[in-house]
Design a protein around this nucleic acid. Structure first.
Length: 404
DNA sequence: TCTGGGGTCCTAGGACCC
DNA sequence: TCTGGGGTCCTAGGACCC
């Protein structure tokens, strides 16, 4: 197999940069996109001027306001506008490589394997990506290129803002060694301290631990995962077809709520939002989840499977409201309430994308039993038992319509 | 200093079935 | 009056990421 080349692109301070681009009067000033001071919430993104005061993403807005001078600007996020800019960027990137995986509003992976022959070495491809984004939307991005997703991602983080870092396969170990272990994916505020208590600080330190020891400390799966990452082993696949698995909407109230009518109204509104998005995306979910948060960040979820998948506002709302009413929450004041739908089962997407799985999609006059079993086995082998249900449903309906 | 919103993935217990 | 073992589904919680 040929060596793969993966590029990770990360827009610099995305929300804040768009605001500064569109409002020249904000340029050069500390700018925070997120909650307004005096209300509940956190910093979503802040400009580099604000970062100089120690302000960071996810920091409570109250603390950000304490750190920043009075001339700082605070804006509510305009997700629709940012989404449009994001779409422009993703479209532009497709002119560079057909395989673009959008991982969030401000991040993408590109498979640029083999492109050196066409448009120059890795460095030059990275430069072109940056130039493309700058020409299209007037923003800067940090770019990382490496033999897999992990290395590309860490490389884009290496120099910010407006950076470009290329790590070749033979440089991976030297590149990883001095980095703090917290850059590894999946080592957050709970599991990083476990390793730090063992005196580990850098990725080189982590690599000195055996697979067995890491599994003992972090659990089998997480341990194996960190063990591999520390050696620079990670996926080198870019999935340009990835689709979301859930749609949700939640609301944190400025003051905790005790009036059920307000909670009901909020859920109703959330259901409309979620239903709308689901219908836009032609999705129906068979699992409705209620999320509720009380004082002290005490968070709970309740979910119910539906016999028939839905995208109807009323049904989503009705189910979530029942989930709320079914439970003795003891009239605790509610900080957050929300709902979501999921459960369209990944196999649906895959089957829709691969109609050939069932052979020639042209109309058949009969479905031979032996052929049916053969394809069902193929499906279950590929996608697991879920797919069998879908498969049999599909064939059943065909059989039924033929017998009419 | 209290902690948004939108997600993904993993774990673990109980139900249920063979 | 003692009750295995494996597999899968459902549900709740939680860690983590951007």
């Amino acid at each position: 197999m040929s060596e793969r080349l993966i590029m990770h692109i990360d827009l610099d301070a995305f929300f804040a940069s768009i605001e500064q681009r569109d409002h020249p009067e904000y340029q050069g000033r500390p700018l925070v996109v997120g909650a307004k001071p005096g209300r509940r919430g956190v910093v979503a993104t802040c400009s580099y001027e604000a970062r100089r005061y120690g302000v960071r993403s996810a920091m409570p807005i109250s603390e950000a306001a304490r750190r920043l001078p009075v001339e700082a600007v605070y804006l509510r996020p305009d997700i629709n506008r940012y989404g449009a800019v994001s779409q422009q960027i993703m479209t532009a990137l497709q002119s560079l490589s057909p395989v673009v995986e959008k991982v969030s509003v401000d991040e993408a992976f590109l498979d640029i394997t083999g492109m050196e022959l066409l448009i120059g070495n890795a460095e030059s491809i990275g430069q072109q990506a940056k130039q493309l984004i700058h020409d299209q939307v007037g923003l800067t991005a940090s770019v990382g290129i490496g033999p897999n997703r992990l290395i590309a991602k860490l490389a884009s983080d290496y120099q910010k803002p407006d950076g470009l870092t290329v790590v070749t396969a033979d440089q991976v170990e030297a590149f990883l060694n001095p980095l703090p272990l917290t850059v590894l994916r999946g080592l957050g505020s709970k599991s990083a301290p476990i390793l730090q208590r063992l005196g580990l600080r850098t990725i080189a330190d982590v690599r000195r631990l055996s697979l067995l020891e890491l599994r003992r400390q972090l659990g089998n799966l997480a341990g194996t995962n960190i063990y591999q990452q520390a050696q620079g082993i990670a996926s080198d696949r870019v999935d340009d077809q990835s689709t979301r698995k859930s749609i949700s909407k939640e609301t944190t109230f400025d003051q905790d709520i005790t009036d059920p009518a307000i909670l009901r109204e909020s859920l109703h509104w959330s259901a409309q939002e979620v239903g709308y998005v689901a219908r836009q995306e032609h999705r129906k979910g068979s699992l409705v989840t209620l999320k509720i948060r009380f004082r002290g960040f005490d968070t709970h979820t309740r979910s119910r499977s539906l016999t028939t998948p839905t995208s109807a506002d009323q049904e989503i709302f009705k189910t979530a409201w029942e989930l709320y009413r079914n439970e003795p929450w003891d009239d605790q004041p509610v900080r957050l309430i929300g709902l979501g739908i999921s459960g369209w089962d990944g196999a649906i997407d895959k089957l829709e994308r691969q109609p050939d799985l069932f052979g020639d999609p042209a109309p058949h006059t009969e479905v031979r039993q032996d052929r049916l079993y053969q394809t069902l086995d193929e499906v279950s082998g590929k996608f697991g038992k879920h797919a069998i249900r879908l498969g049999s449903k599909r064939v059943d309906s065909k059989t039924e319509s033929e017998s009419e």
